[in-house]
Amino acid sequence: MPSHAIDITIDQSENEFTVTMKIVGKLTHSDYELLNPMMDNALAGIDKPDVKVLVDLLEFTGYELHALWDDFKFGLKYNKVFTKIALVGNKRWEETAVTIGNWFTHAKMHYFESTEDAFSWLRE
């Protein structure tokens, strides 16, 4: 497995989107330079988008400092269009981060240890 990779998929059905991200290794500023235009292009011209997000953190090891700031700005930028965010992980701090994240986001956030359970919740 590579030491760093990010796989992003955006599926659309009218104004409903499902964004799936698998992060391997550290999240970098370059990852956000890729992700931001992808989201902007996908949502362009869509009235009232409904975006559900699944983030696979099973092989995630952390953030570069600049990427941590990018993540904060990304969350602020898309806060109103994200309706559900499912994080799939295997570390206690990730579950705690979801609990804290729920205080600051419009979206419902939930932590899962299984990708299948996360997708089921997103479809509810």
Rank of each mutant, 00 (worst) to 15 (best):
D31V: 04
F60S: 05
H4E: 11
H110Q: 15
D71W: 00
F17Q: 13
F119G: 04
E113I: 13
N41C: 07
K77F: 05
K22D: 06
T18F: 12
D47K: 09
I23M: 03
T99V: 05
A67Q: 09
T9C: 09
R92F: 05
T115I: 15
K52M: 08
D31G: 00
K108Q: 10
E14L: 09
K80Q: 09
Y63D: 11
N41K: 05
E116M: 13
K80T: 08
V19K: 07
Y111M: 13
E94W: 04
F72T: 05
F82P: 09
F74R: 03
H29W: 03
H29M: 06
F112N: 03
Y63V: 02
N36S: 13
L76I: 09
S13M: 10
K108R: 15
P2E: 13
L34R: 04
D117H: 14
H106L: 04
K73N: 04
T9F: 07
W121V: 02
A67H: 08
H29Q: 08
D117A: 15
F104V: 05
T115A: 14
T105N: 15
G75N: 14
E94Y: 06
K48R: 08
V81K: 03
H4R: 12
A86L: 04
I100H: 15
F74Y: 08
P49H: 01
Q12H: 11
G62I: 15
G62Y: 01
M1R: 12
T61L: 08
L54M: 15
E113L: 01
D70C: 05
V19P: 09
V98Y: 10
Y78T: 14
R123G: 03
H66R: 13
A44T: 02
P37K: 13
D11H: 07
H106F: 11
I10T: 11
A97I: 01
L87M: 13
E116V: 09
L122W: 07
K22Q: 13
M1W: 03
M109C: 15
A118N: 00
I46C: 06
F17L: 01
K73W: 13
I6E: 02
V98K: 06
V81S: 07
W69E: 08
D7Q: 14
H106A: 09
Y78I: 02
M109W: 07
L57D: 02
V24L: 10
I85F: 11
K91W: 14
D40F: 10
S3P: 10
F74G: 00
F60N: 01
V19Q: 06
D40I: 08
